[in-house]
Design a protein around this nucleic acid. Sequence first.
DNA 1: CCAACGTCCTGCGTGC
DNA 2: TGCACGCAGGACGTTG
Length: 280
Amino acid sequence: MPELPEVETIVCELRAQCLGRSITSAELLRGDMLKRTADTFDSFAAFFMGRFFQGIDRTGKFITFHLDNGNKLIAHLGMTGKFISAKNGDPDPAHLCSRYRFADGGWLGHVDIRRFGRLELYRSDEEIESLKGLGIDPLSSQFEADSLLKFVHSPGGNKRRTRAVHTLLMDQSLIAGIGNIYASEALYLAGIRPSRHGGKLTKRDRERLAEAVVQVLRASIRACGTTISDYRRVDDKPGSFKEMLAVYGRPGEPCQACGSEIKKVKIGGRSAFYCGKCQR
DNA sequence: CCAACGTCCTGCGTGC
DNA sequence: TGCACGCAGGACGTTG
């Protein structure tokens, strides 16, 4: 499940793979992946033909491909999305959703087994709606403990939030890029229970949590992300952060700090993992 | 306005 | 052995 570190890894590799290569054709093989516009197989192809990728960047878990004419392709990988680098004659992988062929014979494939991901096309200066509502990127220089004040109070109201901090961490409109894995890992590092109400976080909690978020995301980027099952880099190699996970996917194992058993609970319909002794 | 829940989708593990 | 079922989860739409 690509979260911020996995998407960051993929974007770096996409830049190295794709920037400046002339696109001769593009195919939309799964029309249901394209949202927002009613482009057809033909207009999708025309959108890319004769162009090249001038820049590729990440906002939260979204990838923006900037074409040289100012148009943009937005991609979200959902649960099982990935990009693969292939050469002329390579067989189509299963679940190929879209493909971008380059003049040198190579192509970039976009694969998504469960199709929770999405593609969007934007022409010239259209506002990118999918990025508009996103919260702060935790790797930006503006991210600090005060960024988590939104966890305590809603922007407008005075009432303290009752949603679990685990759920708040995954709310893309508050912080962009954290999913289920890094929510559990950051809360473990910060010593905070995932079920704790956002409104009950102290200033000290928010400082520790903000620091933990940055720490775990940066560490995972250094390991090229976490491969549990589906996530793969563009070169098909797995990320290696799985072995560094302290609690996610480790129910019943001893906590590395205190030795007590790691617990698994459902919060907001999602699995959260924590140490009942270290996290309060 | 805020929160909670159902929905989409496929592959894999479990139990009968 | 084979089948049915439950589970995994990001974002969005609907409901409370």
